Simulated assay, not measured.
Amino acid sequence: MKQANSSLTVSGNALALAIANPGSLGTIDAYISTVNRLPVLTAEQETSLGRRLRDHDDLGAARELVLSHLRLVVSVARQYLGYGLPHADLIQEGNVGLMKAVKRFDPERGVRLVSFAVHWIKAEIHEYIVKNWRLVKVATTKAQRKLFFNLRSMRPDGKTLDSHQVDDIARELNVRREDVSEMEVRMSGRELSLESQDEDDDSYAPIAYLSDEGRQEPTRVLERKAREQMQGEGLNGALDKLDERSRRIIQARWLQDDGGATLHELADEFGVSAERIRQIEAAALKKMRGSLAA
C-alpha cells in the first residue's frame, strides 16, 4: 500500500489538474504517458480505499481510486475517436464518469471497480458525443443508439452495405435488418440539427427524446441482473426447498399465466379449508423469502 500511495503522491498535483483538463500536462501524449506510469491497485488495496471512502468520506481514498483508473478512461476514450471529437475532450468526459463511479462504488459487492466504472465512463462519453456532434443524425431508440455507436466501424471502407452485410450486422448487434438500413441512410443522408433553432419553448427537438431513462445506468444494470437471477435460479432453488403440497400451492397461486388458482379451488383439491390453504401459502412464502435472502 505504501508503494502505491507514494507513486500517486508524486504525480498527484499535476494529475489533479489533468483530471479536469487532460491538455494541462502539455500534450495528450504526455498525459497518457503519465497516467500509464501510475500503479494499478490490488484487490485488497481497492477494497480498503473503497471502505475508507464509504465509511469516512475520505477524499484522499477517492483520489487514489480515481488516479489508479485514469488509464482505463484513456483506453475507453480511444474507442470513440472516429466521431471527430478531440481525444482530450473524450478523456475529460470519461474522467467525469470515472469520478461518478468511484462515488457510487461499493467494495462489498465483490465487483472490481474497473468492471463497475467502465459503464459510467462509456455512458458519459456517449452523452458527450450525442450532445456535441452538433449535426447528429437522430438516434431515438435503443437499437438505433446501438447502431449509431457501432455502424461506422462495421461499414467496410465506409461504402454502402449490400444485403448480406446488412444481415450480418443485424445478426451481430441483435437488431432488425430494417434498423440497420435505416441508420445507414441517416448516417449517409442529410444532417439534422440536434437542438432546436427555434426560441419557442414549445418546440420539440431531437434532444428532448434522446434520453435512455437511466436503463443503462450501472446501478440499475446490476440491480436488474440480480433481480433476473432471483427470478430464475434463485426462485427455482427456493421452490425446491418446499414440501410437495406447499410447492403446488405456490405454483398454482403465483406462477400461472392465467391468473392462478383461488384459495377455494385449492381447498377442494387438498380437502382442507380455504383458511388452511392461506396459512400454508403464507408459511411457504416466508420460507422462500428466507431462502432468496440467504
Rank of each mutant, 00 (worst) to 15 (best):
H126R: 15
A101N: 04
R152L: 11
E108A: 13
V118Q: 14
A205F: 01
F149P: 04
S115N: 13
L98P: 05
E199I: 10
M154H: 07
K100N: 11
V166L: 02
A170M: 04
R112P: 08
N132F: 03
S203R: 10
M154Y: 09
F149K: 02
R177Y: 07
V180T: 08
E184I: 06
S153H: 06
E199P: 02
D157M: 04
R145F: 00
R171Y: 07
D157N: 14
S188Q: 11
D157T: 00
S163L: 07
F116Y: 13
E191N: 04
T140M: 08
S203W: 06
L98Q: 08
V96L: 12
V175G: 03
G158L: 02
K146S: 10
L192M: 12
E184V: 00
I121G: 06
V180D: 04
H119M: 15
V166M: 03
R152F: 10
S163T: 14
E178I: 08
D200Y: 03
A205M: 06
H164S: 12
Y128H: 12
V180P: 02
H126I: 02
E182F: 01
L113T: 10
E191T: 07
D198T: 12
W133R: 12
G110P: 01
Q165Y: 00
E172Y: 03
E184H: 00
S181A: 13
R186A: 11
K103C: 03
Q165C: 05
A205K: 07
V118G: 03
D179P: 04
L161F: 00
R112Q: 14
Q197H: 13
K146C: 02
L194F: 15
M154Q: 11
D157L: 09
D202C: 04
Q144D: 06
A101P: 06
D179E: 09
S193K: 12
V102T: 00
A117L: 11
